[in-house]
């Protein structure tokens, strides 16, 4: 997915208008593309999404900690599909503190579980206006259409 987007952008098959997003964004590393991918396939996808974001957004920042030390969103491993809602909300407290500290208006995630979890808990943590977007959604939003 990252490789495909990178290929489309590098080869010029899609062109992006970087001026379209004028507010600050932050990036979240999903466990499966980072730690798990590193463990299973010997490669964690850390650099690729950051390169893609460099092509899309002027003001994007990392959460702290990041990459291998990134905190889980709290919705992974199928936990979104269990009835343990209070536990999930509690789990997300560090993630939401990380986001809040960056001052970002948008969180970019390349994962369906992270997307659903962050959207579900944002209001509880006082961030009802936080935009949560898929990485590929950001790309689609700013693509130049002939």
């Amino acid at each position: 997915m990252f490789d495909l987007l990178t290929d489309y952008i590098r080869s010029g098959r899609i062109r992006l208008d970087k001026t379209k997003i004028t507010y600050r964004a932050a990036y979240h590393d999903p466990c499966n593309y980072g730690r798990k991918s590193q463990e299973l396939f010997g490669h964690g996808y850390y650099e690729e999404p950051r390169w893609i974001l460099d092509q899309c957004i002027s003001d994007w920042v990392d959460l702290f900690p990041k990459e291998g030390h990134q905190y889980c969103c709290g919705g992974g491993g199928g936990t979104l599909l269990t009835p343990y809602r209070d536990e999930r909300i509690h789990y997300a407290r560090r993630k939401m503190e990380q986001i809040k500290r960056t001052g970002a208006e948008m969180l970019v995630v390349p994962c369906h579980s992270c997307h659903a979890q962050i959207k579900a808990v944002a209001e509880t943590y006082g961030m009802p206006d936080l935009r949560v977007k898929y990485l590929w959604e950001v790309v689609a939003d700013i693509m130049i259409i002939d």
Partner: peptide, 8 residues
């Protein structure tokens, strides 16, 4: 089941 198997 409350662990997300995030692997940290």
């Amino acid at each position: 089941w409350i662990c997300t198997m995030c692997g940290k």
